[in-house]
């Protein structure tokens, strides 16, 4: 499960059983069609590269029920021509061929890469100027999210660490009628993380049956400077009950709007939820680090400064003594 934790606080802690009850009720509501929202919404949730919708620099060479062939450019900027990233979904059981293309021809020196599909233990040959295309083929027999990363100390190494291959569970493989899926969203406080909030999305098929093994992306409506939009909080796979959960942390008080949608092909299915975080909000605080340790506290700085200035005062007092003596001497004279 992929999670992007965000800081926050919440109003009331709610017990886990209550959360489960809430989620079950939510499933029911969604099954009845009340949670079918989003397609009509004008405020769209941003999508992410998926099969059939690749980012620039990523190409689906071929895709059948049994096999998929994906080609991606890798350069110091990251995956894709301009470092757009690499995130791809396949279905469990498909034969996957990943072809990596060398994208650093504009560099004077060679910038070799070797890619590893973590979890599958598959690594490519060395990709470099003399070997500008390498490919690996394997069967995606395990569901989950797998990181594809470069393991060669190359230029721009940090940009080539977060390729994602998502293998959707066979049972919940994105159905042909993806648009028929419905998703509902609920939120409840969690005690697992102080001040945390758990977003729960329930996914059901047209018959009202929970859909396991599909990936749900969660979003928060956010603004930064004069820009606003949907910021992705993270994704989670639905469990056998068709529920996907994501723990987040509120970082500001007030009304917060979340959305969830099934990641995959077909029209977006999304749900909105406005949560109120009127209680104490964690906010961003620096970690205490060493200065938070008792007796090595920052107050020592003030104590030291006070000691210094007190000593100055003692020295300045000697000037007063000089003045007083001089005055007495003048009076005596």
């Amino acid at each position: 499960m992929t999670r992007h934790h965000r800081r926050l606080a919440c109003r009331r802690p709610v017990a886990r059983p209550l959360l489960a009850t809430l989620a079950a009720a939510l499933s029911l509501v969604v099954a009845l069609g009340a949670g079918r929202v989003g397609a009509a919404s004008g405020d769209s949730v941003p999508g992410h590269p998926a099969a059939g919708h690749p980012a620039a620099g990523t190409e689906v060479v071929s895709a059948t029920d049994g096999a998929v062939h994906i080609r991606v450019t890798a350069s110091r900027h990251g995956f894709g021509h301009e470092g757009e990233g690499f995130r791809f979904e396949v279905r469990q059981g498909q034969e996957v061929t990943l072809t990596f293309e060398y994208g650093d021809d504009d560099l004077e020196r060679d910038n070799p890469h070797v890619f590893l599909v973590q979890g599958y233990g598959i690594r490519t040959e060395r990709l470099d100027r003399n070997n500008p295309e390498v490919a690996v083929t394997f069967r995606a027999d395990r569901a989950g999210t797998f990181t594809i990363r470069c393991i060669e100390p190359c230029t721009g190494h940090s940009n080539l660490l977060a390729g994602r291959l998502e293998v959707l569970a066979a049972a919940g493989a994105t159905p042909e009628g993806g648009s028929e899926l419905a998703v509902g969203l609920a939120a409840a406080a969690t005690r697992r993380q102080p001040g945390g909030l758990t977003l729960v999305a329930a996914v059901v098929d047209p018959a009202g049956n929970p859909v396991p093994g599909v990936r749900v992306a969660f979003y928060e409506q956010a603004s930064f400077l004069d820009q606003s939009g949907w910021a992705e909080l993270g994704t989670a796979m639905t469990d056998p009950q068709g529920l996907a959960r994501l723990d987040v942390t509120l970082y500001r008080p007030g009304e917060l709007t979340f959305a969830a949608r099934v990641a995959g092909r077909g029209p977006r299915t999304e749900a909105r939820l406005t949560a109120s975080a009127a209680g104490p909000v964690a906010g961003y605080q620096p970690e205490p680090r060493a200065l938070g340790v008792p007796f090595i506290n920052v107050r020592l700085i003030w104590l030291a400064a006070a000691g210094v200035w007190a000593t100055y005062a003692m020295a300045a007092y000697q000037v007063y003594r000089v003045y007083r003596e001089g005055k007495a001497w003048s009076s005596g004279a």
């Binding site: 020295a315 000697q318 000089v322 003045y323 001089g326 001497w329 003048s330």
Partner: peptide
């Protein structure tokens, strides 16, 4: 500061 080089002033100055 009214300096007259008295013993008391010298002592205060040295201490300071």
């Amino acid at each position: 500061a009214g300096w007259r080089n008295t013993p008391g002033q010298r002592e205060a100055l040295e201490r300071g």
